[in-house]
């Protein structure tokens, strides 16, 4: 417990605290405001806690024109994205984890590179193509774009998960009468399930939060973020808070559930204690 050690620790904790506050303070105020009675929101100076808890603001938000429909759109798009992403991402992750094929490293890198193209750059060509293919302003179209965005993460996460399932187990299943696929279904898959659930939640959140592509590629079938974005200029403050809170909710909830796997994904440096 030397002096430099304490100093280093102190600096580290200060940095962590600052970082946490930077993220948490806005979330806190959005959350608080969403449950503050509408007339109190404009009050200044702002009290830390509202005088009373109220669902009034949230009710107003949910009953506003278009919100429920876009909410249902959002859920559908997220579920479709989830299905597409897992259907493609899980086998890809399994392949990267298990097989030493030519170009494996290149593939792993290539996956990440796809994330380097800004969606803004692709927006116009995408919109044109989607119109041509009849996918413009459809939920499937948005889900496909979201799948493209979520896939790299899904592949990386599932690779990590399947690497964590010992190859021996599948081989043992094969010597006990399973085919290669049977061994995957009966042994690797059940053992990977918690991790796959985490990947699924992460995918859901990515789709749920995505606003840019959803705004550009839809007109009538807006997802919730797209709907909020297009109506926000003309909305009262409390509508924005309620909408913001609603958007954060699943992310907060799922991230809390899957934080262990996210650590895993960022290099396996899970908290050592």
């Amino acid at each position: 417990m030397s002096y430099p050690w304490i100093l280093r620790r102190t600096l580290l904790y200060m940095a962590v605290t600052a970082f946490a506050l930077w993220v948490l303070v806005p979330i806190f105020f959005i959350g608080i405001s969403a449950f503050t009675p509408r007339n109190e929101i404009y009050r200044w100076p702002k009290p830390i806690l509202p005088s009373r808890f109220s669902l009034d603001t949230m009710r107003f938000f949910l009953n506003s024109y278009g919100v429920l429909r876009s909410l249902s759109n959002s859920v559908w798009v997220a579920l479709l994205t989830l299905a597409f992403t897992l259907a493609v991402g899980a086998p890809a992750g399994y392949a990267v984890a298990r097989f030493h094929f030519r170009g494996r490293e290149g593939f792993r890198l290539g996956i990440l590179i796809t994330r380097m193209f800004p969606t803004a750059l692709l927006a116009v060509p995408l919109a044109v193509t989607f119109i041509k293919w009849g996918l413009y302003d459809t939920l499937i179209g948005v889900a496909l774009i979201h799948t493209a965005m979520a896939l790299p993460f899904a592949v990386i996460i599932t690779t990590g998960i399947f690497m964590g399932v010992p190859k021996d187990l599948e081989e043992a299943a094969m010597t006990l009468g399973c085919s290669r696929f049977g061994a995957f279904v009966r042994v690797a898959l059940p053992l990977a399930l918690p991790g796959l659930a985490a990947a699924a939640m992460f995918t859901f959140v990515i789709s749920w939060n995505e606003v840019f592509a959803a705004t550009i590629l839809t007109v009538n079938n807006r997802t919730l973020p797209a709907h909020i974005l297009t109506t926000i200029q003309a909305s009262p403050l409390y509508f924005r808070f309620a909408g913001g809170f609603f958007m954060i909710l699943p992310a907060l909830f799922f991230m809390f559930l899957i934080r262990r796997y996210l650590f895993h994904m960022w290099g396996g440096a899970t908290a050592e204690r």
Partner: peptide
């Protein structure tokens, strides 16, 4: 494939399935 060779194998790591009970492990094959 291994399944059709009439063999059984004991692995160095044992490779006992962690999501199954001992009875289920033994019954697997």
């Amino acid at each position: 494939p291994p399944a059709k060779r009439g063999i059984a194998m004991v692995f160095q790591s044992y490779a006992v399935f962690p999501h199954m009970t001992v009875a289920q492990n033994i019954a697997f094959g």
